[in-house]
Structure formats: C-alpha cells, structure tokens
C-alpha cells in the first residue's frame, strides 16, 4: 500500500507535466481544428471539417518543410560526423573537454542573437566583402536557401555532434584492433566496424534534428529573408497575424501527424539497419 502511494507520488510530477504540457495542448489543438474562425479572428466552437479541407492552401509550406527537414538533417550529419569522430577518436583526453565545450558554447546565447550574427556574416559587409577582396564579386549569400542551410547546420550541429560523439566515444577501441588484426585496412575497419557501431548515435542525432526542423520557423524567417515559407512560418502567421486559430490548429495537427508518420517510417528503417540490435536507440 505505502509502496503504491510512494510510486504514485514519484510519478505524479512527471504525469502532471505530461498531462498539462503535452496532452492538454494537443487536445485543445485537435478540438480547435474542427472549429471555425470568428469574424474578428480567434475561435468559434463548431464541428466542421472545413479547416482540413482547406489544407491544400498550405501545401507549399508542407512541401518546403518536407524538403528542408531531410536536407538540413543530411547536411548537419555530413558536417557533424567527421567532427564527432575527430573529438571522440583523434583528440587526446586532455583536449577533449575543451573542444567539446567549444562545440556547445554557441548554445549559451539565444538562437536569435546567433542568427543575427549570421545575418551580418552572410550580408554584404561580411563574407561577400571578404571574397570581393580576392576577386569573387557580387556574391549574394544572405536571404538565400544556402543561408538557411548554413543557419540550420550551425544551429543544430551540437544536437547532431553529441549523440554521435557519445556512440563513438563508447566504441570499444579493441574492436578496431581486432579488425586490424584480422586484416582490415583502416578504411575497411571504419566502414565495417566504426560506422555500423555509431548507428545509434546517428539515429538519435538525425531524429532530434529532423523533428526540430519540421517545426523550424526562426532560421528561415531570419536568414531566408522571409521568402522561404515553412509550416512553422505558416503557423506563426496563422496564430499571430491572421488569428485563424481553427485553421492554424488544423495545420498544427496535420504537422504532428506528418511527423509521427515520418518518424515511425524512419524508426522502422533504422531498426532494420541496426539488424534488430537492442542497443540501437532510436530516440
């Protein structure tokens, strides 16, 4: 009896948090998505599928998001993996901590401030001005898809680096010795041992970045000059500008469904890649 009470008390904060922060808002979003917009905006109770029927009006935003999220994830992975490998395998224990901290340091400031730094760096007086000195003139970087990609890779890099770093750092170095002993050249050992053994880290990193990218709106708005429009941006406009809560809720609910579907497909894929290993954590 007292054990049950204790368990209840232990789980109560997490349960309450889960209910208040996750279930209730989601329930509100779903209820609102079947409602209507009031004449001056907001929400009027109703039961209609009109909002969902109107979803094609945001098709472009969904399409852009479904392009950006995988592209950004892959770009972050391509940059993060060698960095994580370097930190986990090549750097001496003395420097590891310092370099790891350097990877996180940018996270100590707000993404807003860091994005403004990139606005300057990619703007006409930043990198293009430097390139101009060596003869590459009139290069436009800011407010391009490239700038958005740079911002994403920069902003999400630690989220990708850390899980991969952990999986590489945990990798038993004797496995690599064993591979070498059995005649594997360094590259062959990397492909056959290191890479498959770091799949849990890759999967976790990709999942984190991918999910967050699905809802990203700040980086496209700031570094894309507002010309690139993602579901996140559509939601901000729907809730904060046109105050069409009903339609905004329908878009949000759809985004959640698209995410769930994508994530479950991805998990199945990763599970197959991991050959049913139980140490392939997916989140």
């Amino acid at each position: 009896m007292s054990r049950r009470i204790r368990n209840f008390l232990l789980l109560a904060p997490a349960g309450a948090w889960f209910l208040v922060m996750l279930v209730l808002p989601l329930a509100v979003v779903i209820i609102f998505s079947f409602g209507e917009r009031g004449p001056a905006g907001g929400y009027v109770p109703a039961f209609t599928l009109a909002q969902y029927a109107n979803l094609p009006a945001r098709w472009a935003a969904f399409r852009n998001t479904m392009m950006l999220a995988p592209t950004g994830t892959v770009a972050a992975l391509v940059i993060a993996y060698p960095l994580a490998y370097f930190l986990a395998v090549r750097v001496s224990a003395r420097w590891k901590m310092t370099l790891l901290v350097l990877v996180i340091v940018p996270f100590w400031t707000s993404i807003l401030i860091r994005s403004y730094a990139w606005i300057f760096l990619l703007g006409g007086r930043g990198i293009p001005a430097l390139l101009d000195l060596i003869g590459i003139s009139d290069l436009r970087l800011i407010n391009t898809p490239f700038a958005v990609l740079v911002g994403i890779v920069y902003g999400y890099l630690p989220l990708m680096v850390f899980p991969i770093y952990v999986s590489l750092d945990r990798l038993d170095k004797r496995l690599l010795e064993a591979a070498a002993d059995l005649g594997a050249r360094p590259w062959a050992a990397f492909v056959q041992i290191t890479l498959p053994m770091s799949i849990p880290g890759i999967a976790t990193g990709c999942m984190l970045v991918f999910i967050l990218l699905m809802g990203e709106y700040l980086i496209p708005a700031l570094l894309g000059g507002g010309k690139v429009f993602f579901v996140g941006n559509a939601l901000v406009d729907l809730f904060l500008q046109s105050r069409n809560w009903a339609f905004g809720s329908a878009v949000a609910a759809t985004l959640v469904i698209v995410m769930l579907v994508t994530v479950s497909i991805y998990m199945r894929l990763m599970a197959r890649l991991g050959n049913g290993r139980d140490d392939v954590s997916l989140m």
Binding site: E177, A180, D181, G183, A184, R185, P186, A189, M197
Partner: peptide, 20 residues
C-alpha cells in the same frame, strides 16, 4: 609492419567480438 598486414591473429582478453 602494421597489424593488418601481419600473418598472425589474436584472441583478445574480452574476445572483442563484433556485436553488430
């Protein structure tokens, strides 16, 4: 001569089997 070029093989203390 590096390990992967030597015609010797080793049984490691904790076996170092490839878990994947």
């Amino acid at each position: 001569i590096e390990a992967h070029r030597r015609p010797v093989n080793m049984v490691f203390q904790h076996y170092a089997l490839f878990p994947h």
